[in-house]
Amino acid sequence: MASELASLLADLKEKEAAEMANNKLEQGADPMEILADAREGMNIVGERFGNGEYFIPDLIFSGEILKDIAKLVEPHIKHKETESQKRGKVIIGTVAGDIHDIGKDLVVLMLDINGFDVYDLGIDVPAKNFVDKINETGATVVGLSGFLTLAFDAMKDTIEAIKTAGLRDRIKIMIGGGQIDDEVRRYTGADACGKDAMEAVVLARRWLNA
C-alpha cells in the first residue's frame, strides 16, 4: 500500500503533500525516505497516465509537486554544502533532435539537491557541446536524456563523439527518458540507464564514490 505522502502526491494534493513533507522533516524524518515516498507517488501518477485516468497536465503538475517537496528536503540533506564540498560534476542535456525536458529537469533538480555540481546544457544539444563541456569542466559523469525513439541515434552519436574525442575511458554515461531500457543502453553504448531521477542520483553517487 502506498505511503500517505505518496498517495497525496499521486492525488495531486499539492498543499497537503508539502505540509506532510514539512511535518515529517520537523519530526526528524530521513529526507531520503521522504524523497522515496515522493518517487512512489510519481510512479502511481505514471500508472494512472498509462491507464487513461490521468492526462499530460497531471504528469506536469505532479512534477511540480515533486519539485516543491525536493526544495523542502534540500536543506536537510547533509551533503549540500559549499561548492568545494560538492560531490562531483555531472553534465546533463536532452540530445540533438529532441526537446523534451520535463524528466531531465527533475533529474537536474535531484542531482543538485543531492550535492552534485550539475551542468545543464538544455535541450536539442549537439554532440559537440557535450564534448566541449567535458573538456571545459573536467566532469566525469554525463547524463543523456531523450523521450523520442528518434533520440536513440542522437545518444549513440553523442557517445561516439565522446569516444572520438578520446574521453570515453574516463567518462561514465547514463541515459534516460521515455522507453529507455537496457536494450537501448546497449544500442547507444552508454554505461547505464535509469528510469527516474532517483536512479540518476544513485548512479552518480556510485560513479563518483560520493
Partner: peptide
C-alpha cells in the same frame, strides 16, 4: 490534450 484533466490543477497554476 493539454487541456484534458486541467480541472484537477489549481486554477492559479493552470
Amino acid at each position: 490534450e493539454i487541456l484534458k484533466g486541467l480541472e484537477r490543477i489549481p486554477p492559479d497554476k493552470r
